[in-house]
Amino acid sequence: MYPSDLKYDKEHEWVRVEGDVAVIGISHFAQNQLGEVVYVDLPSEGDSVNAGEAFGEIESVKSVSELYTPADGEIIKVNSALADSPETVNEDPYGDGWMIKIKLADPSQLDGLLSAEEYEAFVSEEA
């Protein structure tokens, strides 16, 4: 449920580090809490984002949640397929349901993120 090669934050995003690039999505726990995802509002490629700030929004039928990035960087890729099939976030949150790729300004910002084990403990408290 929480792949061990990923890092997690307390806003329920996951991060996969590929060199100086971070791929960001939301966790299985988050998609399950949201229920059926109907819309994902993502930024444009080339925008810059800052740690702790919202970069987009994710909507279910009756709720809206903000999406946060755990690190500063420039958006180099956006998962545009989510526009037509937002349900991918529910079906494959760690794979095709990824949201953005950012070029990290300072990879050390990710040092404080949770491991899969730590995150699982965190969500079991929240649930």
Partner: peptide, 12 residues
């Protein structure tokens, strides 16, 4: 598309 509306999005 009710997420646009006040009962869900409130001040936004």
């Amino acid at each position: 598309l009710s997420t646009r509306e006040q009962h869900i999005r409130r001040e936004k």
